[in-house]
Design a protein around this nucleic acid. Structure first.
Lengths: 242, 242
DNA sequence: CGACAACTTGACGGGCGTCAACCGGAGTGG
DNA sequence: CCACTCCGGTTGACGCCCGTCAAGTTGTCG
């Protein structure tokens, strides 16, 4: 494998490096991973509920979300994803998708055959552990989201979602917690927090008039991070330094 | 290891058998697993948020739940557990608990050192895959709960929770989907569905007066499962036959 | 039989959904 | 270069679902 392909997968390497200590041979195995890259527009489905699972997609640039639909027509976003995220590691062991994965911006993905990832996890216990660890952290984030939509009021919910997104962006190397770009619409924030877009708008305005944050277009600025943390009831421990 | 200990762990064996095809040598490895059993009363903590993770607990009898607390005093239950469940597989790879695990009835647990479980997963790829698969199914259930509390109305939410619990009980060999025992109080149902116990009571009554179910003490009877499924917006696919 | 937890029911209020109108910026085509 | 369109955002009026408060009732275990 030449350097060009290494460069393409570098967001993944960065992420795995945060999950585990990888050695020379791990990096070589990763470098040999066969994959195809694809550029897709915003609003494209990468995984569809009920469909047999296919190749595993890795997000190289852009943003995506996972969501499920209720019979009453409601949509619930259950997670957001950014560059470096393995979009469906769970496909390695479960044979039908129980949710959708959809891009929310234009994005670039790498498609890796499931069998290759399984082989990789088997051949390097460190990489296998990193994969498992990643799915465990995902699960921890889902638990926090259950708490968020189940037991916090609208204002706290929206603030919490912002704090989590800001923290993950900073750790992945996009902007800082004090200033970052939101890729999602207010309707998508609503679907992630179990609210309506109208009420999300009210809550954002409330946070803004209270001086907790300022907005210009989709850029969010947070002057006093500690104050924001308190408003949002946000403790990043559940992210397990992801 | 003698037969007595095999009997003690049999709920775990049954569960792993549902998750993967285990062979002779897998069963022998499981039989050699060192563990200590403990009997605990209702309302006892087995895992505490923020604490370093200790031994891994396996539920041998009784029921337990995982929950998290919000700053406003609210409690959110994020999952229920029954005999055979590995209560904290995630402790194998994450070093601090991000939630609590608490018994909701008197229960019997087996405590297994983390290192032994890690060794087991390493020595038998099938058992390792079963463990990983179990945590992936947990994650799938969390996603469904985010949808449940985020996008369904109170009546549907309560009905969905009952359907899930009924299905899991039946698969684990307790009662049937048509008739089963609820171990939890209405307040615990409320904490699981993001409601108040008062409103859970109203919804249960509503389901009962509509003939969807009948109750006597904590026993639930569901005559028409298909009708109940529709009311609850329940599709068991997300349980991945767990 | 007294104590206590769980359950039950009613009255009332508020947080958030619904509906509707309008604004503003980006893309598009004449 | 300007009009048109369209999506996302913004704001107000109104109403309902579910929370809150409070008072019983039931069942269970000393």
């Amino acid at each position: 494998m030449d350097a060009i392909e290494h460069v393409a997968l570098s967001p993944l390497f960065a992420k795995l490096g945060r999950l585990a200590q990888l050695n020379e041979s791990d990096l070589r195995l990763l470098g040999n991973l066969p994959f195809a890259t694809r550029r897709v527009g915003a609003g494209q489905f990468l995984v569809r509920e009920g469909k047999p699972t296919g190749d595993c997609a890795i997000l190289l640039s852009g943003f995506a979300c996972r969501h499920k639909l209720a019979a009453n027509g409601g949509r619930q976003i259950v997670s957001f994803h950014l560059a470096g995220d393995l979009l469906d590691l769970q496909q390695l062991l479960l044979d039908r998708a129980d949710h959708n994965v959809e891009t929310i911006t234009e994005a670039e993905v790498a498609l890796v055959p499931k069998a290759e990832l399984r082989r990789l996890a088997r051949e390097s216990p460190r990489i296998g552990a990193a994969f498992w660890r990643d799915t465990l952290i995902d699960a921890s984030i889902f638990r926090e989201w259950v708490l968020n939509v189940g037991r916090r009021d609208a204002r706290t919910r929206v603030a919490h979602m912002l704090c989590e997104f800001a923290t993950r962006c900073e750790r992945a190397g996009f902007g800082s917690v004090q200033s970052f770009q939101m890729p999602m619409t207010q309707e998508q924030i609503a679907d992630a927090t179990g609210l309506t877009s109208v009420h999300v708008n009210r809550m954002l305005r409330s946070l803004e008039t209270d001086g907790a944050l300022s907005r210009s277009r989709r850029e969010i600025r947070i002057r006093d991070w500690e104050a924001m943390r308190r408003i949002a009831d946000f403790d990043p421990a559940y992210l397990h330094a992801a």
